[in-house]
Design a protein around this nucleic acid. Structure first.
Lengths: 189, 189
DNA sequence: GAAATATGTCAATATAGCTGACGTATAAGT
DNA sequence: ACTTATACGTCAGCTATATTGACATATTTC
């Protein structure tokens, strides 16, 4: 019997020109260029960190957890789940490994003893910084190739891409200058 | 016996201020803001398509394959693997489903009969367009909120983020104006 | 004291990737 | 013509990351 793909094989491809499929309407056509650029750019961006993570037997999931624990020390489990948009079962495997390996530590909440507040250990903080530095090197190279206003413009673009429902939470962790800038716009509205 | 995570619990978190960790050196510190913004922006960007794909029992892997087949009709397997940077075994499962479901078809190469050239079926083209349109709506909203030069600046930024080794391949599929622009810069160098 | 909340865990499943090994058809090199 | 290389398909088994559903425990709130 023919295999699944062989069964489907059609006649040889003709040499017909495959051009002439240009957007006739600039305003309503899909923006294929940006879609692909975003895909390739993000793939290579996270790829940097993957190489470093292999040395620790960690994956991208560990990276994300470590990053947000480092950036928001004292984060509770529920808050972390809300950021990552995954289930607690998914988080637990990864978090347990980070705890056991001594990159993150959990303390019971001072005001609410049901909570487990997460903190990076010195070792965890070192790795989180190393990863962020690595990814920043790519940003630095990129902004070295672009006009000076590109960095601000990029941050504006990326923030605008975030779902409105999460926009405020994201903005709350941006550096002060960027926060102020946006608040001014809000006032104008 | 205490559970894994309980064993690790430390004393209650003190209420010490966790501030005062601002970058002392603007030039060498990690760019945490952009790292997080890129993460959130990309997450929400691909999230749009996920919802639509569920109706077809397809995942992100199918989306990527369908997209590139639609955009580069007549693509050979090897070329697709090079774009996606996955193994042929990984591709095969997904591609088989797209073939069986009639979203993509394969034809033997006219010049090299070992090759399987991939084409979208009308049904596949329709879905690819629908997905691209959905993702473009987000772009359009975003650029509606930003100054007019933002679209060009964003494309510049994203292209610069791509690994140099793939830069040319990506650029080859950008619309003409964008390609020319870059070529001019190359001349200057 | 009852109910809600924050977290941990067990089990089963899905998706998307991987390595390694092997087979077949076709093209290219000698 | 024979050999080798290439393009692809497939089997088997594995890993990482996610899911749903069910249930347990500690603590807070009503």
């Amino acid at each position: 019997m023919k295999t699944s793909i062989e069964r489907k094989l059609l006649r040889p491809a003709s040499t017909q020109a495959l051009v002439g499929r240009e957007p006739p309407d600039r305003e309503s056509e899909p923006m294929f260029d940006l879609i692909e650029l975003f895909f390739f750019a993000y793939r290579d961006f996270v790829g940097d960190a993957d190489l470093l993570l292999e040395n620790y037997d960690f994956g991208r999931a560990h990276h994300r957890v470590l990053h947000f624990v480092y950036r928001r020390p004292g984060l509770a489990i529920a808050a972390l789940l809300d950021i990552l948009k995954i289930t607690k079962q998914s988080l637990n495997r990864v978090l347990k490994q980070l705890l056991d390996a001594g990159f993150v530590e959990a303390r019971v909440g001072a005001s609410d003893r049901r909570q487990r507040l997460l903190f990076p250990t010195p070792k965890g903080a070192r790795l989180a910084q190393e990863l962020a530095t690595l990814q920043s090197e790519r940003f630095r190279r990129v902004f070295g190739e672009l006009p000076p206003e590109a960095r601000e413009a990029t941050a504006d673009f990326l923030l605008a891409m975030v779902n409105v429902s999460d926009r405020e939470k994201v903005r709350a962790h941006l550096p002060p200058r960027r926060r102020r800038r946006q608040l001014a716009e809000d006032d104008a509205a």
